[in-house]
Design a protein around this nucleic acid. Structure first.
Length: 428
RNA sequence: GCGGCCAUAGCUCAAGGGUAGAGCACCUGGUUGUGGCCCAGGAGGUUGUGGGUUCGAGCCCCACUGGUCGCCCCA
């Protein structure tokens, strides 16, 4: 047993899994670009305050999940638990409000939350996060959702579900909670699960997405927030739904969908996939019109979306999806004898300079062993060099799939390989 | 943070309290220079860690660590 192991809740992504990652990230970059999002990199850690204020003091993330530490200069820093707060901080810090609005940014990288690991839930996981800052038009919400939809569709996802809700704004949400939801829940308090009674005190809205079976009846009959939105929020929500319907993007209205981050206003949505067990959310997002201001910028609307790469990969595997393979060297040099090895090294160098991948067998193992290596390395052609070939200024080139072998003049080898290897791959 | 299950070779798993094995993978061979299949051999373990019970522990008990499933929460 290895003495050291990756810390709890972290994992290594080994070469055999990399094709999935490259595939997902490649598609993600393409889709983001297609919607006019520009890449941005933000620090892995921020001043703790950025997340405390940005994510919200009442959230699970801030209350118990942040990796917070003090650096040698006595600053309190926190490993990012999500991207939005940091990206918004960058938006403000770099005066991006003077750029053409909205500013559409996306980032990919690890985020950190101290949670109990389980299937599909890690302490370090990778997110792609897309933020559209400076636009209140419900079309922006639509674009974000549409882009998310495209991402999953481009990966061939089966059975993704979009759940959608609007949770109003600071003008209409508090009155709804205070005057409608809480009185209702109190009136049926006896029927609620103990945990939900507790939530009723702390964060009444969260009672709505309870999973406790006992509470279901109460929650099902609860007055929905969408019926108590202010006219502006109501119109905004209707307009978003209009676009979704117009372009036939499937979604499900869920008046009980409430998200765990304080900054959300109006639109909230969550994307779930099959094959993931209990942790079946592969993406989520919503509107955060108050966030820029909370972090010290001018009042600025925003809407965004984040997806978890690990879960997407898990779901793709569960569906039996096969990622495109990563490129591997197609030429393998087998040699016999000191001079032949030197010649192989020189020829391989020429092949690589021509832009092809080439490997030379290390050591002086038997031709048989070298052939085995070539086969396992997935090479397409094996170039064999020995005394005979050296004497004639030739090499033997064997095509592994067909087993066909022929002599090629050394000086023509690079052109010979280049012709065959590039032609084969330009075919449709 | 709470609960269930689990931990033996790189991987998947065996081994009624009595000397740790198999398959796959890896390496080397199967005459003189040719892969995949086949055959033979080799290497690889302080049985997650630390205690305890026992003449004797991979096996029983406790703790810890990690995994897994669920709760919670979310991506």
């Amino acid at each position: 047993m290895a003495r050291y192991q990756a810390p709890r809740g972290t994992q290594d992504v080994l070469p055999e899994d990399q094709p999935y990652w490259r595939w997902v990230l490649g598609v993600a970059h393409d889709v983001a670009a297609r919607y006019g999002f520009q890449p941005i990199e933000v620090p892995v850690f921020e001043e703790t305050e950025v997340f405390v204020r940005g994510v919200g003091t009442g959230t699970d993330i801030v209350e118990k999940e942040m990796y917070t530490f003090e650096d040698r200069g006595g600053r309190s820093l926190t490993l990012r638990p999500e991207f939005t707060a940091g990206i918004v901080r960058a938006y403000i810090e770099h005066g991006m409000r003077v750029r053409p609005q909205p500013v559409k940014l996306y980032a990919v990288g690890p985020v950190f939350r101290y949670e109990a690991p389980q299937a599909g839930r890690y302490r370090q996981h990778t997110q792609i996060s897309c933020e559209c800052i400076g636009e209140a038009d419900p079309l922006a919400d639509f674009e974000i959702m549409c882009m998310a939809w495209d991402l999953y569709a481009a990966l061939g996802f089966q059975a993704v579900q979009f759940q959608l809700n609007s949770i109003g704004c600071p003008r209409c949400r508090p009155p709804y909670i205070r005057d409608v939801l809480v009185p209702y829940l109190r009136s049926r308090r006896e029927e609620l699960n103990a945990l939900d009674v507790e939530r009723l005190q702390k964060n009444p809205l969260r009672v709505l997405d309870t999973k406790e079976p006992e509470s279901q009846a109460v929650v099902n009959e609860a007055p929905s927030i969408t019926a108590h939105l202010c006219p502006e929020c109501s119109e905004h929500f209707a307009q978003l739904r209009f676009y979704l319907d117009m372009l036939e993007r499937p979604y499900e209205l869920n008046p009980r969908l409430v998200r765990g981050l304080d900054y959300y206003t109006r639109t909230v949505f969550e994307v779930t996939a099959q094959g993931l067990g209990a942790q079946n959310a592969v993406g989520g997002g919503g509107r955060y019109d108050g966030l820029v201001e909370v972090l010290g910028g001018p009042p600025t609307p925003g809407v965004g979306f984040a997806a978890g790469i690990e879960r997407i990969v898990l779901a793709l595997k569960a569906q039996g999806a096969v990622p495109p393979p990563l490129p591997a060297p197609q030429v393998f040099f087998v040699h016999r004898g000191r001079l032949a090895k030197d010649a192989a090294v020189a020829l391989a160098d020429q092949v690589r300079r021509r832009g092809l991948g080439a490997l030379v067998a290390f050591g002086e193992r038997s031709v048989k062993a070298q052939m085995r290596q070539a086969s396992k390395a997935g090479a397409e052609y094996v170039v064999i060099i020995g005394d005979d070939e050296l004497a004639h200024g030739e090499v033997q080139v064997k095509h592994l799939d067909t087993g066909r072998q022929e002599a090629v003049v050394q000086a023509e080898l690079v052109a010979w390989l280049h012709k065959r290897l590039t032609a084969a791959h330009s075919a449709p």
